[in-house]
Design a protein around this nucleic acid. Structure first.
Lengths: 228, 228
DNA sequence: CCTCGTACTATTGTCAACAATCCGCGGCGC
DNA sequence: GCGCCGCGGATTGTTGACAATAGTACGAGG
């Protein structure tokens, strides 16, 4: 038959300029290009992005709604600065979201989910050498974890929280843990999902988050984990 | 001493126009003034609100980021329509958030939290006769529940989800449950918080959410609850 | 009778200019 | 010397108008 591959020509729809600008700014903030506390001048940003101030302001309002920017009236927009309290808050929220996503995962197609997660895990292993690539892979793993749950709202919230997580890392000297320990924790999560063990999954997840908070807030304190 | 009451003159700062417009639109959508699927014409809305299209567009982008509006390029902005799948999704997300908030509550000052909740509960009882006032009070109770946890992120997410909840109710004929049963469920939640019983709190919460989903999606099916 | 092409209209997307507001600095009075 | 007032510069908030695009209706052609 003359049926050709249609999988690649569905999403012809270009998104609005404001959405593109918002994405660009989000990644820039996430990567630490704009350190927390810096003011985002509208005219300079607009010129640099090649758009006018209108769409730029719309994009900024979106980021304000996401909690990444803080708006002071007639003063300007500033990159939100995250303190210790915020780190704890981000991780408690992440724990809540990812735990719920994990439970949905277990209730759904565990095999497919485990496969997606192991794929993401292998990408983490491939990036173990490069710290920034490892951080990207970690981000992608958790995003995949929540996305696989099939819940669009959990997914959106998790994405916002992951961006804030990376802001924390970038701001607080990005003390990434040893790659081996990090990967081991994620592998355990994968196994729990594949086995359908909800208790273990939740426990591993909570321990993972608690470890991350402890590591970020007290970089010197050693975190008990698997040695290698 | 000459110390006067300072509690009421701190927040002199007026918020930006876009924020005000966003609030106005949010409540309008929440109350069902704009039924799901309706297009929000910019010129008409701007004229009706007495602002220009610029701030209005910024407010709308905020609501898009919150998931209340859906943007189609060169077509306009429409109120997001929620189906059965969305109802389930909203309530799973709410369960995740409120469960986490409840755990934080138990870890903090239980007595103060219980007091705030019982106050909110009494407001529900006072509004038992009027369905819309009862819905408002229910909304306020859950908002208070999450706010008392002290987590700004959980609070913000919960607020968005509560707005979506009311959209669901307004769209699907707002079949509110009998006031007595509703209040009884919330009172049980209060008691669990005061007693510090995490297991019971989570169980009550999940049952409450499951009941709500069942009621919304199948209005005729009787929900087993306390008779009166 | 149905289908394709085309002009029109209404709406959104974008832009540049105007007005209001706030910070920093210099001068004045006490 | 210290504090207050006023002014200049810069930035944000807002406005109106211009341009591009999608939907719609009408008419021509098969």
């Amino acid at each position: 038959m003359s049926t050709v591959d249609l999988s690649e020509l569905e999403p012809v729809e270009r998104r609005s300029t404001a959405a593109i600008v918002a994405d660009r700014l989000r990644t820039a903030i996430m990567r630490g290009t704009f350190p927390p506390g810096t003011q985002l001048g509208e005219v300079e940003l607009a010129a640099r992005l090649g758009v006018s101030r209108g769409p730029l302001r719309e994009a900024m309002q979106r980021l304000v709604a996401e909690g990444l920017l803080r708006s002071e009236r007639h003063r300007g927009l500033f990159v939100r600065e995250l303190g210790a309290e915020d780190v704890r808050d981000v991780y408690t929220a992440r724990t809540a979201i990812e735990r719920a996503a994990g439970l949905l995962l277990l209730a759904g197609d565990r095999a497919a989910a485990a496969e997606r997660l192991t794929a993401a895990l292998s990408r983490m292993e491939a990036a173990a050498a490069d710290p920034v690539a490892l951080a990207d892979a970690d981000h992608a793993f958790h995003a995949e974890f929540v996305a696989a749950s099939g819940s669009p709202r959990l997914r959106r919230m998790a994405e916002t929280l992951l961006v804030e997580t990376r802001m924390c890392l970038a701001a607080l000297q990005e003390t990434l843990p040893p790659a081996a320990a990090l990967i081991a924790e994620h592998r355990e999560l994968c196994d729990a999902v594949r086995d359908g063990d909800a208790e273990r999954m939740a426990a591993v997840l909570e321990a993972h988050m608690a470890d991350a908070v402890a590591r970020i807030l007290a970089p010197d304190a050693p975190v008990p984990a698997v040695p290698a």
